[in-house]
Computed example of a mutant assay.
Amino acid sequence: MAAVTTTREASVDIRRAPDRYATRMSWLDSKHSFSFGHHYAPDNTHHGLLLVNNDDVVAPGTGFDTHPHRDMEIVTWVLDGGLVHQDSTGHSGVIYPGLAQRMSAGTGILHSEKNDSWRLTGEGEHTDPVHFVQMWVVPDTAGIEPGYEQLEIDGELLAGGLVPVASGMERDKDAAAIRIGNRYAALHAARLAPGGSVTLPDAPYLHLFVPRGSVTLEGEGALATGDAARFTATGGNTVTATEPSEILVWEMHATVRG
């Protein structure tokens, strides 16, 4: 897929949590915002540069066994628990809330993701699931060397504003926590107390996801846990929390062409 810039009419498309595709197994409860795996709809394959927005809950002691990726920028955002990452480039560690993490698949990478941090700590088996959102955007250059980056940004999130988490945009080279390989895309996050608010960017494509809590989107009304809004050729709306909430916002200045 290649990134292209386009001109579209302004619109906001609200997607409700119950309407997402679902994959449920004994160890996994996964909700998909876009076509994923055997869940396929030709009119729901992406928004802007975002191809995957999976909302996953993984049972303790289980997870995704080693599997391949290629030519994809993968950002993982943990809400609760710890997710153990291991990949074929030699990186390993536990991803936890407030830690921004990006994996560039490039020419090819193998990795696994498990809820088994008890094996690392030696404190015995726990019974806590891990809840995380995994997001995939296309790179603007195929065949790059695989890479990995992470950074703790919990302190910035405590301030309550919209925090640049991952970006490939030139304007964010000194602001974003981690870099991704697409110069047209940036991910922002915010943790909001009740009554707290942020203003969304104005961009050709935005994707607002509420992984936790409930908010009011200016001009559109209430968004609950798991709801999303897809903006085209618009933005600048205020998002206000009605309870303790967390939001993830992709700002994109291009879309994909298959």
Rank of each mutant, 00 (worst) to 15 (best):
G81L: 03
G106D: 10
V78R: 04
T66S: 15
H32C: 02
S112E: 10
P97A: 00
S88Y: 08
H38F: 14
S112M: 03
F64V: 05
M72A: 14
M103F: 00
P42W: 02
I109L: 11
D71P: 08
A59E: 13
M103W: 06
D55S: 01
I95D: 05
Y96N: 11
G82A: 14
I95F: 05
S104T: 15
L79A: 09
K31Y: 07
L28C: 03
L28E: 02
R102A: 15
G93I: 10
G93F: 05
A17R: 10
Q86M: 14
G81Q: 03
W77I: 11
H38G: 08
V78H: 04
R102K: 14
S35T: 08
S30I: 02
P97S: 00
Y21G: 13
S26D: 15
L99P: 08
F36H: 09
T107W: 06
T76E: 00
D80F: 06
Y21E: 12
G48Q: 06
G37E: 06
G106P: 13
D65N: 15
Y96G: 06
H67V: 04
N44T: 11
H85D: 04
Y40L: 11
G106T: 12
R70E: 13
N53W: 13
G108R: 09
V75A: 03
S112V: 10
P42Q: 11
D19M: 06
I95G: 04
F34I: 07
V52S: 03
L28D: 00
A41F: 09
P42T: 07
V57A: 08
D71V: 10
H85F: 04
R20V: 05
H85W: 05
T62H: 13
W77L: 08
R102W: 14
L50E: 02
Q86R: 15
S30Q: 08
V52K: 07
Q86H: 12
D87C: 07
Y21N: 11
T45L: 14
S35M: 03
T107A: 13
E73H: 09
P97L: 00
